[in-house]
């Protein structure tokens, strides 16, 4: 067991190192942020002076070693543009990212799961057809389009919701729907297949043949068993939601990590991009590691497989 854990941890470390290396070099392929920082009238000498002051004139490999050394001390560096530690920036944005993810997950689950049940229970009925159409439709629209439509209707036309930015809970409603509707299909799909699976199992068929009514059956027995795959998917979907938030955050001026990262990419603010990507990678890898460990505790067979 410790050997297996050690091996997995080693793999995780290599993955993180790979992400760090990839992101470091890919970003630096087109130079540095100096040109974006100086006013238009800056001369070549001015530009070189600033580049020197920022340390971007050093050999790339030295910069890379520096970056790794900082990373080893869990120092993500300072934003070149804002001149504030990257950790400060991430810390101020993270709560909004989590709020949006929670809101979107609520929408996705809250609508996806009932629709999935509908799809499984009413199979070929018109009701299920319409629901299926709705799910797919929600998944087939770019968010920058559905987002502005929502703003036009609910904010400008009806005046029900604030168009953008943060404030109270109402500011969260539209971004959550714009983002959550995309993932709704996944939840509906998983719920449907999990339910169909359970419904075809012996216990469910026996219960039905003994006259158990559908609602009772769903509530008492099936819900519990069918929720296992659902939780797994929810965990996976969270990382998708975080990534998908890039455009939603831009449209709704929601101050999450996606928005700041896109801006940092375009501004060549390397440190922020590295920080956010590494943090994301760290979370993903840690979750994977954790689930591996949990699985191997639950089911020793997986341990054999994983430790080969």
């Amino acid at each position: 067991m410790p050997g297996f854990l050690l091996q997995r941890a080693g793999q995780a470390l290599i993955t993180i190192l790979g992400v760090a290396t990839l992101i470091f070099f890919v970003q630096r392929l087109t130079g540095d942020p100096t040109y974006l920082l100086v006013p238009e009238t800056a001369t070549r000498a001015d530009i070189d002076a600033l580049r020197h002051a920022l340390g971007f004139d050093r050999p790339l490999f030295i910069q890379y070693l520096d970056f790794l050394a900082d990373l080893a001390r869990f120092d993500l560096g300072q934003s070149v543009v804002q001149r504030v530690p990257v950790t400060t920036i991430i810390a101020s944005r993270l709560p909004y990212t989590l709020m949006l993810a929670a809101g979107a997950l609520t929408v996705a689950c809250g609508m996806g799961v009932p629709i999935g049940i509908l799809l499984a229970v009413f199979r070929d009925r018109a009701v299920a057809k319409i629901a299926a159409g709705f799910v797919l439709a929600a998944q087939s629209m770019p968010t920058f389009w559905s987002g502005i439509l929502m703003i036009m209707v609910f904010s400008v036309l009806l005046g029900w919701l604030p168009p953008s930015s943060t404030g109270d809970i109402w500011n969260l409603v539209m971004p959550s729907f714009a983002l959550g509707l995309l993932s709704m299909a996944t939840f509906a799909r998983i719920t449907r297949s999990a339910l169909l699976d359970e419904l075809s199992k012996d216990y469910a068929r026996t219960a039905r043949s003994r006259g158990a009514r559908m609602p009772r059956l769903l509530l008492r027995h099936i819900a519990r068993n069918a929720s296992i795959p659902l939780i797994t998917v929810a965990a996976l979907e969270i990382s998708n939601l975080l990534a998908g938030a890039v455009i939603v955050e831009t449209v709704f001026a929601w101050p999450g990590l996606g928005q700041v990262t896109v801006q940092a990419i375009l501004a060549r603010d390397f440190m922020i991009v590295q920080g956010v990507v590494l943090m994301g990678a760290f979370v993903t890898v840690a979750l994977n590691l954790l689930s591996d460990v949990l699985y191997s505790v639950v089911d020793p067979r997986i341990l054999l497989d994983g430790a080969r």
Binding site: Q11, G18, V26, L29, A243, V262, V277, A281, T284
Partner: peptide, 22 residues
């Protein structure tokens, strides 16, 4: 599989934006 892990640990949207920008 390690390379796959690396790529899957970076949000696809962000990686796409970075590489197109480059």
């Amino acid at each position: 599989m390690r390379v796959v892990d690396v790529f899957l640990s970076i949000p696809a949207v962000l990686l796409a934006i970075i590489t197109v920008a480059v």
